[in-house]
Amino acid sequence: MPPANPISRVVEPVARVVAIVFGYTILLYSVALSVEIVGRKLFNTSFKGIDEVGGFVLAISAAVGASYTMAMRGHTRVDVFLVRMPKAAQRVLNTLAMVSMAAFAAFAGIRSIAVLQETLEFGSTSSNLQQPLWIPQAMWVVGLGLFGVIATAYAAHAVWLLATSDPRLNAFYGPLTVDDELESELASLEARQAEEVVRG
């Protein structure tokens, strides 16, 4: 195991809890959607606007999930060329990747606030349910804001490691290698097999 990233040690537990909460939200939503399917076919009832709620669930989940994905280094990067470059070049590019991601996340966060402001100004309501649009949008803004803050912290840390010639930079901020990803996949398989053995 590589040394744990000190930023991730703070970020990961928080992001994990939030991600699990929205996992339950997605699960709950799929149950509601299943009730809709059956209710519509058999009892001729329909939750008006359940599709609209789904759109909100997705937008918010994607926003809040971005932080957890960041902590797990799960946002896609093409690493094949990078890993063949000299270590010094990798240090610069990895820092650049973190800084650019932070700029992206911060911009997305700031612009999302402007969207929410307009919604509040107009008193916009959702198209089908006619419920206040600011409620889902505020959650979306919080998700993106969190992402912006976290991405900025990572970027600052990467810049610091680069400036202080800290050798851990590439280990913390290089693209997740496939080995790392499969570590958990194999662990999960072993767990399943162990269970299988116990059950006979």
């Binding site: 329909s46 008006k48 599709d51």
Partner: peptide
């Protein structure tokens, strides 16, 4: 639209979005 849904419901139909 919500107003269409309301009207359809009044006519006894099930509005689906």
């Amino acid at each position: 639209t919500p107003t269409m849904s309301a009207m359809l419901q009044k006519l006894g139909a099930t509005p689906v979005t």
